[in-house]
Simulated scan of single mutants.
Amino acid sequence: MTWSEIALIALGALAVGLLLAWRGASRLDRLHRKVAASRIALDAQLVRRASTAVELAASGALDPASAILVADAAYTASDAGPVTSPAAALKMDGLGPERERAESGLTATLREAMGSPESIQLLQAGPSGEVVAALAAAWYRATLARRFHNEAVAQTRRVRKLWYVRLFHLAGRAPMPRTVELDDALPHALEPNGG
């Protein structure tokens, strides 16, 4: 084998390696964008859930003490730091522990204020039934948005653990994405197929 044949084989191997690296980096870039977009969507759904919780508190359907607790928890969740720009979403750090605690607190407060499945059915049948239905829909969409976000994070983490991604540093300087862990379980009576 002459040196020109060896050089040709090496050049072909280099071209294939560069093509694979380019495809891997493009895939990672798409996954990082998917994580950022899903985080923005999750934030929007959580803000919608908090605003419908405030509407429920103001509707008069809850007793006064529960209405104050729900409104306070909703305002705390809203003030805990929504994502205001795409640059903030690119940090890949989930929602942050303070926001996750506030959203979990809103969930617990809503479940406690709405009470048993029978009292939820009474709320749905009463004059504030539309507000309860809007809250249930916003809550369900927020739950789905968190699941989609966490799945996007899991996909990105799986790809970033591949040997060639680590070896060639294909992720660049993008931080490792973090899942969003919070309590967002709906009461059974508010689930689309449960109540």
Rank of each mutant, 00 (worst) to 15 (best):
A58Y: 03
G12R: 10
Q45G: 05
L18C: 03
K91L: 09
L95K: 00
D79F: 14
D29F: 09
R27T: 11
T107F: 05
M114G: 01
I9L: 10
N150C: 13
G94L: 08
S78Q: 14
A44N: 15
A37H: 09
W163G: 11
S66P: 02
I68M: 08
A102G: 07
H188A: 08
G126R: 06
L106E: 00
R99S: 00
Q155V: 12
A80P: 01
Y164T: 11
V54G: 01
L110N: 00
A185V: 14
T179M: 14
E5P: 04
G12Y: 04
L135S: 03
A74F: 03
A125E: 12
G94P: 01
I120E: 02
G105N: 08
R99T: 00
A7G: 07
L90H: 04
G126W: 06
D79Q: 12
T109H: 04
R178K: 15
E118I: 03
G96A: 11
G172H: 13
F168P: 02
L162A: 13
N193T: 10
A74C: 14
G24T: 15
L62T: 08
P64V: 08
L18H: 07
A89I: 04
G115N: 04
E118H: 02
K34Y: 05
L106Q: 00
A142N: 04
R23W: 13
G129P: 02
T107Y: 04
S59I: 09
A87S: 12
R30I: 03
H169N: 11
D43L: 07
V47E: 07
A88Y: 00
G12C: 12
K161G: 05
A37C: 06
P117V: 11
A25C: 10
D184A: 15
P64L: 11
V132T: 07
I120H: 08
L46S: 02
R166K: 15
N193H: 05
S51Q: 15
L18E: 01
A15G: 15
A61M: 11
R146G: 03
R111I: 14
N150I: 14
L19R: 12
T2Y: 08
Y75K: 12
A142S: 08
R160Y: 11
E55P: 02
A44L: 15
W3C: 05
V47F: 00
A80V: 02
A138W: 00
V159L: 14
V54C: 06
L56R: 01
H149F: 15
R141A: 14
A125I: 12
A80N: 01
L186V: 04
E112L: 07
I9E: 10
G172E: 07
A25F: 08
L11V: 15
R146W: 01
S59G: 06
D29Y: 14
V165C: 02
R166E: 06
A134H: 10
D63L: 04
